[in-house]
């Protein structure tokens, strides 16, 4: 109970701590520094690029792009491998058939 009362009091004290607050003022010569920036605008390209890249949307898009490229390369490779295997198996079957036909022809000649 006592703890509760203390906490309530602390909360009230914190909320009232900004009563009679005074305005904070910037360091002297603000105008001079603004004028210096007006005359020499600083353009840090790397900072701009880093800022752009570290944006969540750009980061997510970049990761998605990499994943898509990886998947497509994987599919393309698999497709090519299966195509070559099929071609090879077709070629082998055709070769076997040719060989069989040749043998059959030789047999026929010998029989004649």
């Amino acid at each position: 109970m006592k703890n509760n009362k203390n906490t309530e009091q602390e909360i009230e004290d914190a909320l009232n701590s900004l009563n009679h607050i005074e305005r904070a003022a910037p360091a002297p010569y603000l105008l001079t520094r603004i004028q210096a920036r007006l005359n020499n605008p600083v353009k840090n390209t790397w900072e701009n690029i880093a800022g752009f890249i570290s944006r969540p949307a750009v980061m997510v898009a970049g990761i998605c792009f990499l994943v898509i490229i990886n998947i497509s390369v994987l599919f393309y490779k698999n497709y090519n491998t299966s195509k070559i295997t099929t071609e090879r198996s077709f070629t082998t079957a055709a070769d076997e058939e040719d060989e069989y036909n040749n043998l059959a022809t030789i047999d026929n000649i010998e029989n004649q």
């Binding site: 701590s17 900004l18 904070a24 003022a25």
Partner: peptide, 19 residues
């Protein structure tokens, strides 16, 4: 610590700014 806060309220004000 806000520079305009009165000395006796500094600690409470720091907690309030955190909140």
């Amino acid at each position: 610590n806000h520079p305009g806060v009165q000395l006796e309220n500094k600690e409470n004000a720091a907690v309030l700014f955190k909140a």
